[in-house]
Design a protein around this nucleic acid. Sequence first.
DNA 1: ATGCCGTGGAAACCACGA
Length: 258
Amino acid sequence: MRIATYNVNSINARMHILQRWLAETQPDVVCLQELKAIQENFPEAAINEAGYQAIWHGQKSWNGVAILSRIGDIAEVRRVLPGDPEDEHSRYIEAVVNNITIGCLYLPNGNPAPGPKFDYKLKWFDRLALHAAELLASGMPTVITGDFNVMPTELDAYKPERWVNDALFRPETRAAFKKLIDQGWTDAIRKLHPDEVIYTFWDFFRDAYGRNAGLRIDHFLLSPNLVDRLKAGGVDRNVRGWEKSSDHGPVWIELADV
DNA sequence: ATGCCGTGGAAACCACGA
């Protein structure tokens, strides 16, 4: 079972890329972030034509998350991260597909830091940790994936010294990610490739992709009962080089069938 | 270190992203 995550940076601006990538790689389950479309503007018909069912949570202009499946029902569990009724950003959606709980997230960027946006990011992280602990306690095989907006270690940024004061790499941010991992989650891509430089994002500016000046900020967290099923994983980095691409590349893992 | 690019939405510029 192949699960992928892709920050599309506008679903409607990216449909040609999305359709081509889905056809070429045929992931079974896909988590999308940054739809940048209201609920009614999600291109459901084109997604269906590509062979996928979908659930999504849109929002005007910003954010927005979706889960696609070509292997059967998407049983939605929630479309809001618990813990703050006043948070109206569409940044989380969760469903059970093929007996695996899939949490799809778009964690706040948090810049500029310090400031209210950074406070929101850390608060969101706290809510995620609380909910993630409940997912572990459920005993369900669980994948939490998406754009975490965190480089977990220095290996995950092309010039880490430039990022130490950035919301994606500040000590508080890395500590929050580590605290989450320490609950018992496995960073699947890093587990598979412990020492490799792997990026999932390349800025639009100054040929960042051509220079491989990237960041690893899109992640897969696996519950302990899934780790033995992890067979492979990587980044479809070539997609980032396609014309009119998102600034992120798709990331994927392959899980053994039970 | 930077928003130089890209997107959406409103307005012919600005917010936002990482």
